[in-house]
Nucleic acid binder design. Structure first.
Lengths: 151, 151
DNA sequence: GGCGTTCGTTCAATCATTGAACGCATGGAG
DNA sequence: CTCCATGCGTTCAATGATTGAACGAACGCC
C-alpha cells in the first residue's frame, strides 16, 4: 500500500513528519547543514543506497528543504544546498542529537557543539523565550483541538 | 529488503532515528505524552492501521520509550505509558511542532503551549544553557569525527 | 442470548527499500 | 587514441513494510 498521507491532519507535527518521517531524510539534512552538497558525498558518508538517495533528494527539493543548483556545466554537475526551510530544521536535529546522547548513548557522545568564536561548549536547552525558564521547570499544557480531555 | 540498521553509526542522530525514524512513532509518542494510554484511543485519534499500531507499540516498548502495564485483570487490559526515555522526547516533538508551525503551516497553528500555572503562552526557544544566548544568534560549530573538513 | 468494548491477529494487495549492476558524460594519464 | 576514474544517476529482482478490511477472543451489561 502507498504510505498514508499525514499532511492533511490538523497537526503541525503530523505535517512535519509527512516530510521528515523516514529514517534517512534527517540524516541527509544533517549532512547538508554540515556543508555536504554532492550526491557522492552523501552516499559515501551515509552508506545510503543510491536509489534511495535519489528519491530522498528529490523529495527534499520538492518540499523546499534543499535547493538543487548546477555548479558546473561541463560536465553538468548538481549540488544540493539547504534553504531557509532546511536551516529551520537545525533545532529539530539538535534536540534529536541530545536525546540520542542521553538515551541511546555510546559514551562519550561522538559530536558536540561549540561557539565558533569563543570555542566554548554549547549546551542547548529549550526555554520559554519570554520568561527564560527551561520548559522542564514549567508546568506546560498543550492547548488545541486535538488535546484529549482529561479522564 | 530489510530496512538498514542505523544504530551502529557513530552518530547520536542516526541512533535516534533508528528508533524514531518513521512516520508514526513520534505521533504515538506525542499522544502518549498528552495522556493517551489505550490501543483504541491511539487508533481512533491517528487513524493508524491496527496492524501498524501493534507493531509500533511493540517497538516502542522494546526500545524502552513506552511501558506496557495491565490496568485490569478481567478482562485483561493493557495500557501504554511513557517512560523517562519517552518523556525525553518532548523537546524533539516541541521543536518539530515549531518547525511545522513555521514552515508547513495551516495558519493559525492548531496547537500551542501555555504555562499551566499562569496561562501565559510559551514560546519555546533553543538557547545555550550557560550563556543564555539563542543558538540562532551564535556561530555554532559541530565538533567530532563525522564533521566534514571544509572545502 | 445479543450487543458493545478492547486489543489485537490474519489476509492479500501494493508500496518502499535494498544491493548490485549498468549508463553516460567528461577529464586525465600514458 | 585508449583506458580508467569521477560524478550522478537509472534499472533490476528480491524482500520487507504498510495498508484496509475482516476476523477473533475475552469479557460486561441487560
Amino acid at each position: 500500500m502507498r504510505r498514508k498521507r499525514l499532511d492533511r491532519m490538523q497537526c503541525s507535527i503530523a505535517r512535519a513528519l509527512d516530510v521528515v518521517g523516514d529514517p534517512w531524510t534527517l540524516l541527509i539534512v544533517r549532512d547538508a547543514l554540515l556543508g555536504v552538497t554532492r550526491f557522492e558525498a552523501f552516499q559515501a558518508r551515509l552508506q545510503i543506497p543510491r536509489a534511495t538517495l535519489t528519491a530522498r533528494l528529490a523529495h527534499l527539493v520538492d518540499a523546499g528543504i534543499l535547493e538543487r543548483r548546477s555548479y558546473q556545466d561541463h560536465p553538468p554537475r548538481e549540488e544540493y544546498v539547504p534553504t531557509a526551510k532546511g536551516r529551520g530544521l537545525r533545532p529539530v536535529i539538535v534536540t534529536l542529537m541530545q536525546w540520542g546522547d542521553e538515551f541511546a548513548r555510546d559514551d562519550p557522545p561522538p559530536t558536540h557543539l561549540e561557539d565558533a568564536s569563543t570555542g566554548l561548549k554549547i549546551e542547548p536547552t529549550l526555554v520559554d523565550r519570554v520568561s527564560g525558564a527551561p520548559l522542564t521547570a514549567l508546568r506546560v499544557r498543550a492547548v488545541g483541538p486535538l488535546v484529549p480531555r482529561r479522564g
